[in-house]
Structure formats: structure tokens, C-alpha cells
Simulated assay, not measured.
Amino acid sequence: MYLLVKTVHVFAVVLTIGGVLLLAMTLRTIHPRIDERSRHVVESVLRWDIVVTTPALAVVWLAGFTMAFGAGWDTSIWLLLKMIPVVFLTGLHTIGADMLRRALRGQVKLPALVRHAPVATLVAFAAIAWLAVVKPF
């Protein structure tokens, strides 16, 4: 059963990271004023987020907790440290999707920090992968 849950978890992680990167890159590339062509792209990205990324993120959390408690890792230091970038990525996803929705309505000015969201996503994912594979603590 553990291998099945792990497989589902890894697949959901791939979908989630792809979706968070898609949000981050879309935010990075849209202009302050969204024209008709950009509007279509942003709407498509938001549909993908609703249909694929958000459910995948929920599966990541559920399968992750299932594995952690099932394997007795719930008090492991490496897992607790791993939760920091996991929560960061979850927040980045939530904020990114919200910013895109507001940008679509013309209600938000995108902060300069948005430029760094793709790199922040990759760095957080690298930290998660390293902690999950190496389990250093």
C-alpha cells in the first residue's frame, strides 16, 4: 500500500510543481494591462489551476500525511523541516492564483517580487526533494 500512495504522491507533486510554475511564469510575463490575447491565456491558466493544480495539491497533502503517519515519520526532524518549503509552495500557489484573478479584473498591480516566483518555486522544490530523499536528520 505504501508504494501505491508514494506513486500517487509523486505524480501529484509533478502536477503541482508544473501548475505552480505555470502560475509564476504567467504572472511574470503579463503586462500591467491585460490585452485580449493575454486575457485568453490567463483564463486558460486559471482553468488549468482549478481543474488540475489545486486538486493535485490536495492529493499531495493527503498522500504526504498518509505516508508520514503510516511510516512513523510524523516526528522526524527532516519531515518537519520539509514542511517549511511545502507550506511556502502552497502559499505561493494560493497567492499566485489570487493575483492572476485580480489582474484579470484589473484590480491589482503586480509587485516586482513576482519576477522571482519561478526561481523560488524551483529552490523550494529542490529543498523538498533533497530532504525527502536524503532524510538527513
Score class of each variant (00 low, 15 high):
residue 1 M to N: 04
residue 1 M to Q: 00
residue 7 T to Y: 14
residue 7 T to F: 14
residue 8 V to G: 09
residue 8 V to L: 15
residue 11 F to D: 05
residue 11 F to N: 07
residue 12 A to P: 11
residue 12 A to W: 12
residue 12 A to E: 03
residue 15 L to T: 02
residue 15 L to H: 00
residue 16 T to S: 04
residue 16 T to W: 13
residue 19 G to S: 03
residue 20 V to Q: 00
residue 20 V to H: 01
residue 21 L to A: 01
residue 22 L to K: 02
residue 22 L to R: 02
residue 23 L to W: 05
residue 25 M to E: 07
residue 25 M to Q: 11
residue 25 M to H: 12
residue 26 T to Q: 02
residue 26 T to P: 03
residue 27 L to Q: 03
residue 27 L to K: 11
residue 28 R to Q: 13
residue 28 R to F: 10
residue 29 T to K: 15
residue 29 T to N: 14
residue 29 T to C: 11
residue 31 H to V: 01
residue 32 P to E: 11
residue 33 R to Q: 15
residue 33 R to P: 07
residue 33 R to F: 15
residue 34 I to H: 04
residue 34 I to R: 00
residue 34 I to Y: 03
residue 36 E to G: 08
residue 37 R to T: 08
residue 38 S to G: 05
residue 38 S to T: 02
residue 39 R to V: 06
residue 41 V to K: 09
residue 41 V to Q: 10
residue 43 E to T: 13
residue 43 E to W: 10
residue 44 S to Q: 09
residue 45 V to G: 01
residue 45 V to E: 02
residue 47 R to G: 05
residue 47 R to Q: 03
residue 49 D to E: 04
residue 49 D to I: 06
residue 49 D to M: 11
residue 51 V to S: 08
residue 53 T to M: 04
residue 53 T to Q: 08
residue 54 T to C: 06
residue 54 T to V: 12
residue 55 P to W: 09
residue 56 A to R: 09
residue 56 A to E: 04
residue 56 A to V: 11
residue 58 A to C: 06
residue 59 V to G: 14
residue 61 W to N: 09
residue 62 L to R: 00
residue 63 A to S: 08
residue 64 G to T: 00
residue 64 G to Q: 12
residue 64 G to P: 06
residue 66 T to N: 01
residue 66 T to A: 13
residue 67 M to I: 00
residue 71 A to N: 11
residue 72 G to Y: 01
residue 73 W to N: 06
residue 74 D to A: 03
residue 74 D to S: 15
residue 75 T to N: 10
residue 75 T to C: 11
residue 78 W to I: 03
residue 78 W to R: 10
residue 80 L to D: 15
residue 80 L to K: 15
residue 80 L to Q: 15
residue 81 L to K: 13
residue 84 I to N: 14
residue 84 I to K: 14
residue 85 P to S: 08
residue 85 P to N: 09
residue 85 P to E: 08
residue 85 P to V: 05
residue 87 V to I: 14
residue 87 V to R: 07
residue 87 V to Y: 06
residue 88 F to T: 05
residue 89 L to F: 00
residue 89 L to Y: 05
residue 90 T to Y: 00
residue 91 G to V: 08
residue 91 G to I: 13
residue 93 H to R: 09
residue 93 H to S: 03
residue 94 T to V: 12
residue 95 I to V: 15
residue 96 G to P: 04
residue 96 G to I: 07
residue 98 D to C: 15
residue 98 D to K: 13
residue 99 M to L: 15
residue 99 M to T: 10
residue 101 R to T: 11
residue 101 R to F: 08
residue 103 A to C: 15
residue 104 L to W: 06
residue 104 L to N: 04
residue 105 R to F: 14
residue 106 G to A: 02
residue 106 G to H: 13
residue 108 V to M: 05
residue 109 K to V: 12
residue 109 K to N: 11
residue 109 K to T: 14
residue 110 L to N: 04
residue 110 L to P: 10
residue 111 P to K: 14
residue 111 P to T: 06
residue 111 P to F: 09
residue 112 A to F: 03
residue 112 A to R: 07
residue 113 L to E: 04
residue 114 V to K: 05
residue 117 A to Y: 12
residue 117 A to H: 06
residue 119 V to N: 02
residue 119 V to F: 03
residue 119 V to K: 11
residue 121 T to Q: 00
residue 122 L to E: 00
residue 123 V to Q: 02
residue 124 A to C: 11
residue 125 F to R: 10
residue 127 A to Y: 06
residue 127 A to E: 01
residue 127 A to R: 09
residue 127 A to L: 13
residue 132 A to I: 04
residue 132 A to D: 05
residue 134 V to G: 08
residue 134 V to F: 12
residue 135 K to Q: 14
residue 135 K to T: 10
residue 135 K to G: 07
residue 136 P to Q: 12
